[in-house]
Nucleic acid binder design. Structure first.
Lengths: 124, 124
DNA sequence: TACGGCAGACTACATATGTAACCTGGTAAT
DNA sequence: ATTACCAGGTTACATATGTAGTCTGCCGTA
């Protein structure tokens, strides 16, 4: 796993999600529009978050007519890292413990469990 | 699930873990000893973290000969919350997606997979 | 061509977090 | 009783984070 350069904060993550959802580089305007609707953030707030992400190496600036921003970290990659991080920090390094918690805490529906069972049949 | 009063930071979590592991209230001295060994933290650093946790309502101070600190939030409870939080923030609210990620990621050992498979055989 | 709007750069500021020092009074040991 | 040490309280200070304002130059439109 290529590890992350620096931590991505909650607010910054919102920006990453917009880019990940778009599946392509976006100009600041686009990002701003989404986050203005979604979170009520001002244009400058979005700009600050984007700048910080560039500094952190999570986004790349592409010069076109106007700057476009492209994620250098994929959603999968980040999610994997976050999941592993949670496992290490709170589940004694055991993913099984995490899953057990999810199962117990109603986090998983009956269908989820059924699907997971299938998944484990197929895997390996 | 009784929700958490405030966020517990990474460093603060280290303190909580010491208490959770102890399974009982501890005096600051004990906590400090563990964290001095485990993290190299100074006595005052530990004191600050403990104080913040008390302020946040995560720890309760018990007056004896000397103050003893007792977690008001259980490890299970916190872990559940953290897991759910991760699911909501990065896995589109689907715990199944998280599990799928754990399975796919290199972070899972063969034994982990085996255990998970067993778990799903037994569960439900 | 003058002007209004917007992108990008820079600045601002309160709260959170990581990490720790200083001070003060009580307690144990001499 | 004197002293050294330690618990508890208070203060410190840099960096991170959430959230946003100001300034400046360019570009399109009147």
């Amino acid at each position: 796993m290529s590890f992350l350069p620096e931590k991505i904060s909650d607010s910054e993550l919102e920006v990453m999600k917009v880019l990940w959802e778009a599946g392509d580089a976006l100009p600041i305007t686009e990002i701003r529009t989404v986050l203005q609707a979604r979170r009520g953030w001002e244009a400058t707030t979005v700009k600050t978050l984007v700048s910080r992400l560039v500094t952190k190496g999570a986004l790349q600036q592409e010069k076109r007519n106007v700057f476009y921003y492209r994620p250098l970290i994929g959603r999968e990659e980040y999610s994997d890292w976050a999941a592993q991080n949670l496992v290490d920090r709170l589940f004694k390094g055991s993913a099984r413990n995490l899953v057990a918690t999810l199962v117990k805490s109603e986090g998983l529906s009956a269908e989820d469990i059924a699907e997971l069972r299938d998944m484990f049949k197929v895997e390996d």
